[in-house]
Design a protein around this nucleic acid. Structure first.
Lengths: 230, 230, 230, 230
DNA sequence: GATGAATGAGCATTCATTCAT
DNA sequence: CATGAATGAATGCTCATTCAT
């Protein structure tokens, strides 16, 4: 079966045939739908979309969602204002599409096949990847945090949320069952991990010029692990 | 000398006569300017200002700074649009005034005379106060985070920053000197503490309906302390 | 009962208490609703609305609905563009409101208590009034004819249609029963009357500078009557 | 001489050599210019033009000239937007060309050699042809009426006007001289005839699904004739 | 002071037109 | 020639700000 062949067929295939939990099926479908759009696009279109998304992220970092103008986005992306409206129906849809993209990109990049490793190693790997990614593209956080309470977010996008959190939960549960992680409320543990990684990456970006040393990664993970380990 | 007499005179007095470090002088002047506004106001005016600030915070929580309209703020505050312009020169000044108010409220409320207590007790008290305050008024964070990268923030306000961080630093240094706290970069430790407290308070507000139990406070602090303690 | 007191109450009153046919009830309600809006408006608002409607009619006559710009309407009405949006949600609603007004104005002005007169006298009076009105405000026709096939017309407005036609039908039926009018399809007779009066009034306006003599009225009615009389 | 050879030569030839009144010369030149375009075209081009004109008429009937978009016309004609600009310099020229075509088609089709017949027979034949044509293509009226007051009409096209009216005048004059038709202002008589035929044809199209019976033609003509006959 | 209708600059969006393929 | 994505000027609409009451 060809991923580019037919969208509906593929989704039905995923739903009916794969031996997976509903939760994972759902994630795969979301990601698939997103990829489908890109896979069925010519290179030039994909490139154009990336230009637009990049421009939007850059500008959000500078002026916030409150300061975003369609004309500025176009200028930053080196295209005409009207061109934006070929790719997106309006400003709202552009921002929602970017949100959707960012939400779905985070999970696949972080989640890898590391189930066989010890929990602390798994967590370390995730910590490292997340921290590096966030430092590398801190604008992502800025955009996401602003967008969710902006007037532009659609009802459907409000519901899309973060495979990352769910994945973390699974690891934490595993850790608890192996008596490696404190038997505390998952949401509290997740708040610590995500709050710390976001806050620390923002600090690295703003005050350290984006320089993230191995030592910083190790030390920060060590702090985190000391907090949650049994 | 009367605090309400004359703004400029007072500021000059602080700058020239008090035997303080520049840093502390600066803080005092900022706080003084802020108080000056309120002290010179009739009760009805102060009440009006609180209505306006409240309305702005509420709306920021709903629609973000991107969605704030002067007319909405007026409506939410149950006054006429024109009235806003009696109290503030324009939208920018309204938002900057609110930012200034929030920034300066946080420190005094949290920082109390707890120097004599053990470091972990000091930290516990701060943790508890901060968490309770953030849960109580989570909109504060939403506003602050959005405002600092909005197109409205003034250059002067960008520099105003967080007595809270400085105060934390002092405690952490004291803890390190007493070999109670890990000898790690302060910014990393602070990222953990602030990131966790913000993230956790947001979780409590959004998913727990704002209900913060003593148990949650204790458990979360315990997590935090386990991370940073020697 | 006060006409300005309560809209819903009044409409219910018309529907439940008046001894009228449904058709007439419906017409009265439509007209009532329209009047209600004006009666509950301050003089300045009513004046503003008339300015806007006048400006729109004038411009439609000059450039057609295709050439109407909100900025031009505002300029012609000597108000700011933004002001239009205080009175109407958007261009579409402005045009629909004008259409509704024109549709409902025509009937009351023409239809008077002339039931007791001979059919040809009734028709003559109607002819005279209609012709004079159309000559006086030919822009009305221009607007109405363009609007009904413009992209702006709302579904609800498509259904509102012409008490005038229905009133004509009643007179024609009466005339037929008295053997004064040819026993032909009403729609054909109405096409003759309305087609002639519109076409003739347009001619008077365009080629005669709007000068309508009594002689022209009498001669044209005579033509019309000769056509349809037994 | 070949009609397709050279446009300017031909026009000069008409102007200098033919023994005709200026008025008729002018008409011939207009018609010639129009034919010239078609005669010099390959079949595929002519077909393309008809597609474009048809599409434009259809759309004008649906959304009025106000709602016409070049992209919609192209879509309706099943061609690319850019192709429109191969055939017409711009939107204005497209619409003017259609107007010109419609104006010049009407006269030749209706005016035939019927001078030898009795006036009422001549009028009946014209009535029948006009009514059938209008019912058959009611969109023509819609387009013409909107176009003449649209911002697109060119100055030259404003002057092109209706051989039909002139032809009617001739017949009416003849009728008057034979004491068959009332001695009234021609414009009034023409208003009756044209107003009625347009209004009635619109009724047939909108309310009778375009079904025009012989009886309707006869009855309507009879009405018309009764009005104007002596 | 307080009001909220009016203003018009500024931004979102449309669509006639172009041009590389 | 035909195409349709790209363009940006033109237009619809919003909302911070003003000002007569």
């Amino acid at each position: 079966m060809n991923i580019t062949s037919n969208n509906t067929t593929m989704i039905r295939y995923i739903q009916n045939n794969l031996q997976l939990t509903n939760h994972i099926k759902h994630s795969i479908i979301l990601i698939y739908e997103y990829l489908f759009i890109f896979l069925n696009m010519s290179d030039s279109k994909t490139k154009r979309l990336h230009q637009i998304f990049d421009a939007t992220l850059q500008l959000t970092g500078k002026v916030g969602i409150a300061g975003l103008k369609m004309s500025s986005i176009a200028k930053e992306a080196s295209i005409a204002t009207g061109t934006l409206y070929i790719y997106f129906k309006n400003k709202e849809e552009l921002l929602n599409a970017l949100y959707f993209k960012l939400q779905n990109e985070s999970a696949p990049a972080i989640i890898q096949d590391i189930h066989h490793l010890a929990i602390n190693i798994q967590l370390y790997k995730m910590w490292k990847i997340a921290l590096e990614r966030l430092v590398d593209n801190n604008l992502r956080i800025v955009f996401l945090e602003q967008f969710v309470i902006s007037p532009y977010i659609s009802e459907s996008n409000k519901k899309i949320d973060i495979g990352f959190k769910n994945y973390l939960k699974q690891i934490l549960e595993q850790g608890k069952s192996e008596n490696l992680i404190k038997n505390l409320d998952n949401d509290m543990l997740i708040s610590l991990i995500i709050g710390f990684v976001r806050s620390f990456s923002t600090h690295i970006v703003n005050d350290r010029n984006g320089c993230l040393s191995e030592k910083s990664i190790d030390e920060s993970f060590s702090l985190c692990w000391n907090a949650i380990k049994m």
